[in-house]
């Protein structure tokens, strides 16, 4: 409600608008534009990285449209994103509700601790989890057989379901603390008078949270969903370091970013890797637009 009012009444001192957004576009033009244009150029070429660059027209794009591995990698990436994003946003909403409505001893400590997993480089996290799960005598097999959850050691990394689930779990584990912090930052901006009013009206805490807080922080939730889908669709480090960087077992954790990295730096098809890049960009843009319109539609309906 509020932000709609805000948007309609934006102050029209338009030339200052350009002044404020100028720094972004200047730096963007200097540092980002050329690499983007160069990648688009490469996507129409055949190039092994060291030899001459040959134009191949739209051949790379034709190949992309028929490339099963590309589609498989997109599905993998999307699936692993969904499987981590839904639990992640639910955890964050529950945690921020708990922190907002209950006096929790050591709240700051908990929140900081939940953020810890995000501090370790993703590549190291992949390696750490590999060490925990790989092999019959690995730490996890050792523990699980000892407490009787497993009859005999399980070949974790030969199971497509497990590997894919583990990637989602790691992503959830790394990011739920971050998401919580962001949601709480959003809640901060909500005028506390509204809560008092709601409480006076006899609403329970849960009702207040769902009916009042969540709609008020919709821009924050949109931000989280969009950035999560953008980051999630570019997932690279964790699955690349968890197994052999080819997405084993049987390409179950091969993400599109890994695929294009391998096409480029391992197979030396830089032209095609650029095409995959462009394809991934289009997919991300479509998914973001869908996500954005879904959330904004709800916003309109909600009023």
């Amino acid at each position: 409600m509020r932000q709609r009012k805000g948007r309609r009444h934006t102050v029209s001192k338009s030339r200052y608008g350009y002044f404020f957004i100028a720094p972004f576009f200047i730096v963007f033009a200097i540092f980002s534009l050329y690499p983007i244009l160069y990648t688009i150029f490469l996507s129409f070429q055949s190039w092994d990285g060291l030899g001459p660059v040959n134009s191949v027209g739209v051949k790379n794009y034709e190949r992309l449209l028929k490339d099963e591995v590309f589609y498989q990698s997109l599905w993998n990436t999307f699936r692993m994103w969904m499987m981590n994003f839904i639990p992640q946003i639910l955890t964050a909403l529950v945690l921020s509700a708990v922190f907002t409505f209950h006096r929790i001893r050591g709240m700051r400590f908990f929140r900081a601790a939940f953020y810890l997993p995000n501090l370790i480089t993703a590549a190291s996290v992949g390696l750490l989890f590999n060490l925990l799960f790989d092999g019959d005598k690995s730490a996890m097999n050792h523990i699980l057989t000892k407490i009787g959850l497993l009859e005999e050691p399980f070949a974790f990394f030969n199971s497509m379901v497990f590997a894919s689930g583990l990637v989602s779990y790691i992503q959830w584990w790394m990011w739920f603390g971050y998401t919580t912090v962001i949601v709480m930052a959003g809640i901060t901006t909500v005028d506390s008078g509204i809560y008092d009013a709601a409480m006076v009206d006899g609403a329970t805490r849960t009702q207040t949270y769902v009916k009042i807080t969540l709609p008020m922080i919709r821009p924050t939730l949109i931000y989280l969903s969009i950035t999560s889908i953008i980051g999630g669709m570019q997932l690279f480090d964790v699955p690349a370091t968890l197994t052999n960087s080819l997405g084993d077992p049987r390409k179950s954790i091969l993400t599109t970013a890994m695929y294009l990295y391998n096409q480029g730096f391992r197979n030396h098809n830089y032209g095609y890797a650029s095409t995959v890049s462009a394809g991934l960009f289009v997919i991300i843009a479509i998914l973001s637009a869908l996500c954005m319109s879904a959330l904004q539609k709800k916003e309109r309906e909600g009023q």
Partner: peptide, 13 residues
């Protein structure tokens, strides 16, 4: 064999 990939913990051990 041990049923693990080379460089896995068990392999090294």
């Amino acid at each position: 064999d041990l049923g693990v990939d080379p460089w896995a913990p068990e392999w090294s051990a």
